[in-house]
């Protein structure tokens, strides 16, 4: 632990190697797995990246919508009226509307993304709300006295105050999102993607199991290196 300066992300060479190892692990695994299951590694990678792209697009929409709604409805009369409504909407059985959506948008990325947004948006929304509820009255008063507004109000106050909720909500939302993604892809019958992949190997338990393991590996790496470090960082900042 020579580099104990706060600016350093990596604490030692060992740390650097462990990070490199874990980041490359999903790629190595994909190669070996493709070899074993006798599929072209490129095809597998394509299926995975296509699904990843869908969930990322859906996530960006969800985060923006959730953040705006949370900011609009977190306090006062707006909260009293709207939160029970959102609570009911959250329980809306999304998949019941799937056939209708396919009817409207066809077997398309739009259908998949819209359904993902409907799943991912809720945990993010409610987590941001709970973050914003932690805003102390005197912080709000300080912001009023010191006349913070517009962009500065967003940057110096609302965004930092909502960040822990945004991150926690993103972790939960994406967790649910991956599940919804594969289900939606299968039900809609998209020609490519992870849903398609697992459907292709419906009769092969070994490939399915190894596929799920590889998938978990990728999610683990993303969580460990992106979300959990962000979560830690945001809690550090919010600490009073």
């Amino acid at each position: 632990m020579k580099n104990k300066h706060s600016g350093h992300i990596y604490r030692s060479w060992k740390h650097v190697f462990v990070v490199i190892f874990f980041v490359s692990l999903p790629f190595l695994y994909t190669l070996l797995f493709a070899e074993y299951a006798n599929i072209a590694a490129g095809v597998l990678a394509q299926d995975f990246s296509l699904s990843l792209l869908r969930i990322m697009v859906a996530y960006v929409f969800s985060a923006v919508i959730a953040w705006i709604c949370a900011v609009l409805f977190y306090r006062g009369r707006a909260a009293t009226i709207s939160l029970p409504i959102f609570d009911v909407l959250q329980s809306f059985p999304t998949f019941a509307a799937l056939p209708l959506a396919v009817h409207v948008w066809g077997v398309s990325d739009t259908t998949v993304v819209v359904f993902l947004v409907l799943t991912v948006v809720w945990p993010i929304f409610f987590s941001i709300i709970s973050s914003l509820k932690l805003i102390r009255d005197d912080w709000q008063e300080a912001v009023e006295v010191f006349d913070l507004r517009g962009y500065q109000y967003f940057r110096k106050f609302l965004l930092p105050a909502s960040l822990p909720g945004l991150i926690t909500g993103s972790i939960i939302g994406l967790g649910e999102g991956w599940e919804a993604l594969i289900a939606t892809e299968m039900l809609v019958g998209t020609p490519r993607g992870l849903g398609k992949f697992f459907q292709t190997f419906a009769d092969n338990a070994t490939v399915t199991a190894l596929g799920i393991f590889g998938f978990l590996l990728a999610v683990f790496v993303i969580n460990k290196f992106v979300w959990l470090s962000m979560l830690e960082w945001s809690h550090e900042k919010m600490d009073q």
């Binding site: 300080a142 010191f146 006349d147 913070l148």
Partner: peptide
């Protein structure tokens, strides 16, 4: 304020600067 009401995510400098941003 009684309990200072400093924004925990801003540095001392940024907290003092708060009221100047709009002025």
């Amino acid at each position: 304020f009684q309990q200072f009401a400093l924004l925990p995510w801003l540095t001392v400098y940024e907290n003092i600067e708060l009221g100047l941003l709009s002025r």
